[in-house]
Amino acid sequence: MSLLSTTNLSVTRGGIPVLERLTFTLSAGEVLVLRGPNGSGKTTLLRTLAGLQTPSQGQVHVDPDHIAYAAHADGLKSTLTVSENLKFWAGVYGQTDIQPALAAFDLTRLTGRAAGNLSAGQKRRLGLARLLVTGRPLWILDEPTVSLDASSVALFAAAVQQHLATGGAMIVATHIDLGFEAQVLDVTPHRAKLASQSGDFATGFDSDEDGAFL
């Protein structure tokens, strides 16, 4: 069963085309790793897949109710405690049980701590624990392992394995090796060729219209 597929997808950032002609499929139990240099448009692609942006061309076929999106910012409130933060997101997704998520990311001892007092790595773990309380099969993750130490990365990898085993899937932009089998999509060949497109304004203007008109 395909959770996500794109056909001939092109995405833009701030009016500039960044990636084009992306066609791929992601099924339950699979992981797709996006690779490519900084600024190549991985974040833009993930935002488009998550529905925050509209594609400039092509289609994304996905049920929005399957997506759990996580980006650089974790969406944590510093004055709320760890469990309050997690309970809020669980509630938003109609879930109630946050214990498994806390346990999976080794946060059980920190539940009463205000999120503002956590270290960067602990915050990140809390941000990732949020994925477990969404109950959604398709994870769309942007650099999930930033500021995680080796043991935390292992926790994350274990959580992903568990997720995949229960019919989940993940598309992730990351530079580290998570230690399990994954399809890799290198976006470099899909970087937009600049001569071919540039929207309404840069094309069709090459004749000289700048003659005096007044």
Binding site: G14, G15, I16, L194, S198, G199, A202, F205
Partner: peptide
Amino acid sequence: RKRRVHAIELRERV
């Protein structure tokens, strides 16, 4: 014209 300049600048920056 300003939009055109903007588009050209973007293209050059990329």
